[in-house]
Simulated assay, not measured.
Amino acid sequence: MRKSIIASILASSILMAGISSGQGIPRRQKDPIPASVETVYTKGLRYLANTQNDDGSWSGTYGNYPGVVGLCVLAFLAHGEDANHGPYADNIRKGLDFLLKQQKESNGYIGNSMYNHGFATLALAESYGMVEDKRLAPALKNAVKLILTAQENNPKGGWRYTPESNDADSTVAGCQLVALLAARNAGVPVPDASIEKGLKYMASCRGSNGAYGYTSRGGGKPTLTAIGSLCYSLSKNKDAKGFQESLEYLKKQMDYRDKYYPYYFEYYMSQALFHADEEVWKAWNEKNVRYLSTIQAADGSFPGNKGQTFSTAGALLSLALNYRFLPIYEK
């Protein structure tokens, strides 16, 4: 039986005691899953399961990057897979084992970039309440601490490629904010000031039309706007200045496909629209399901210049709002 994931993350021994006392498992809404979604998703999961390496990573372009491994773990969990006894339990555990072994003991850093660290942290956060592994709690606590420390040392209040970066951009900053918001949503104490500072940086990249640029208000793009909009939704700031302008901008991009990062766009666009306006998401989702159904290979993978592993995980996660098992998908 598929199970959703307990939104529980450890930040201290007191919090751990509270979580261990037991929490109810949230159930997804009883909306029927379209057969076309289930077909695409199950084929994609079989591909990821069949191509995983023994060490938990994947071969090919970016397959051994912690961020990509984290997205693959999320793809399994987002389908409601049982991480302890289900058919993909071994895949989930091997993926998490890989992430845990990549974390530096000295500072909690996972991988060699904040992209990798952010997505890996999100995977740990969404896994903690479901997977029985004593290593997850301290690893997650240290991963969150590194994100907060990196922001404290960043004069812009954001994040970029490394924990020591003095500049910032909306993609890396958005990735860290989502990880922090997932942690806070699940119970980890994340200072309001840290979220507010991160959102302030994101706002500095938003133009008057609601579109977000990379490092400034200029050059707004749909993918960046989806990231920024999602951060405001998850932080419960949909009444903030500029949010509606961003939604209106995204509503004009319903047929957009990012030429360079198509699955990165779809991953964020699906979440941004779902949290901002579910009716708009439904319209976009129908188009996305049809599109992905036509480009999925016979083996369940998806093509892309960033490697089949990343492409497949990103494509599946863009469909995951149909299931709504992950805590990060809760409104």
Rank of each mutant, 00 (worst) to 15 (best):
G22Y: 02
G22C: 02
G22P: 01
Q23C: 14
P26V: 05
P26T: 04
Q29L: 14
Q29V: 12
Q29Y: 08
K30S: 04
K30N: 05
I33H: 06
I33A: 07
P34M: 07
P34V: 06
P34E: 06
A35H: 06
A35V: 09
E38D: 15
E38P: 02
E38M: 05
T39S: 13
T39N: 12
Y41N: 08
Y41C: 08
K43G: 03
L45I: 03
L45W: 03
R46M: 14
R46A: 15
L48N: 11
L48K: 10
L48I: 14
L48C: 12
L48Y: 10
A49F: 10
T51H: 11
Q52L: 14
Q52Y: 13
D54W: 03
D55E: 13
D55P: 11
D55Q: 12
G63P: 10
G63Y: 09
N64S: 15
N64E: 14
N64Q: 15
Y65L: 13
P66I: 07
G67D: 00
G67T: 00
V68R: 00
V69Y: 04
G70C: 08
L74G: 00
L74R: 00
L74K: 03
A75R: 01
L77V: 09
H79C: 11
H79G: 04
G80Q: 04
D82F: 02
H85N: 12
P87R: 15
P87K: 15
D90V: 13
N91G: 03
N91T: 03
I92L: 08
R93K: 14
R93I: 08
R93C: 08
R93L: 09
K94E: 04
G95S: 11
G95Y: 06
G95N: 10
L96Y: 09
L96F: 06
F98D: 08
F98W: 12
F98A: 09
L99M: 13
Q102T: 03
Q103I: 03
K104N: 15
K104R: 15
E105Y: 13
E105A: 15
N107A: 06
N107V: 04
G108P: 01
I110E: 10
G111Q: 02
N112D: 14
Y115A: 02
N116L: 01
N116P: 04
H117R: 03
T121M: 00
L122I: 08
A123N: 00
L124A: 04
L124M: 06
A125L: 14
A125K: 00
E126G: 01
E126M: 04
E126S: 01
Y128L: 13
M130F: 07
V131L: 09
E132L: 02
D133R: 10
R135P: 05
L136Q: 01
A137K: 12
P138R: 07
L140C: 13
K141H: 14
K141T: 15
A143T: 04
V144R: 00
V144D: 01
K145A: 14
K145G: 04
K145T: 13
I147P: 01
L148Q: 07
L148D: 00
L148Y: 02
T149D: 05
A150D: 05
Q151R: 12
N153C: 12
P155W: 10
P155R: 09
P155S: 11
K156G: 07
K156C: 12
